[in-house]
Amino acid sequence: MSDRALAVVRAGALTTVQDRGRPGHAHLGVPRSGALDAPAAALVNRLVGNPPDAAVLETTLNGCSVRPRSTVTMAVGGAPCPVTVDGRPVAWGAAVRVPGGALLDIGAARAGVRGYLAVAGGVAVEPVLGSRSTDLLSGLGPPPLTDGTVLPLGRPPGFHARVDVVPHPAPPLELVLRITLGPRHDWFTDAALRTFTTRPYAVSSASNRIGLRTEGPALERSRAGELPSEGMVLGAVQVPPDGRPVVFLADHPTTGGYPVVAVVHPADLPGAAQAAPGTPVRFVAVRHRR
């Protein structure tokens, strides 16, 4: 492999390659995938002068360590965390020049869940259906990184962004998710809909890239029976038989048979990607359609 490569020294709890995903194939059962906190991924790309659709690394809670084969510009963003190069602290949320052979370490998140590492030129693994994203539901794209994985890098762009620092929203202390009720809110009792939009929930530790699971009061259905499978959107709040709402994130299944009580406003999903287990969640109805 050429010098344009990045060796993964410590893969961390779960580190995947992500770009803007592969929308447009849902009718074939292909999830959209892509960075969960898409604005954070776009910001770190901007810091190293990449186009917004360049592939980055998405870390989970405890970061990762990488060693570039040649000198390259990198930036770490998303969940705030310590960043070091060969043990020396360097800036988080800013472009950093990392010498070839040096070790860049992304430490444990101080808040939030998902960190993003952009490398000038982008991670250049082979795209699948137009995207380099790892899809954990269906197994498309590169597998999650393991210690020793070597990733090819693309050519660095000819210019660098002139911004030194870009504003990152802080991970939420309380996750407020604006929702539009429906399409299947009529499968639930009025009391359940009141519970859903007024009572506190908490982020469950069973959450992943497929869905943000919640703990809290169960939502009671107003009817028995099964719903035939139907198409699912990003941000759909599906209610499985245990009654606890699940917010569908990027790797969600394209069809499903549990009723969708509401859909989360897309602008609130990056916050959901950064809400650590135990974070309080409130679902706030912004429009009620019957």
């Binding site: 929308p23 447009g24 849902a26 009718h27 499978s229 198409g231 069809t255």
Partner: peptide, 15 residues
């Protein structure tokens, strides 16, 4: 529309 997703008794239009 970005996605046309047929299912058992529905069609979803997304985007």
């Amino acid at each position: 529309v970005a996605e046309i997703v047929p299912a058992a008794g529905t069609v979803l239009l997304d985007g």
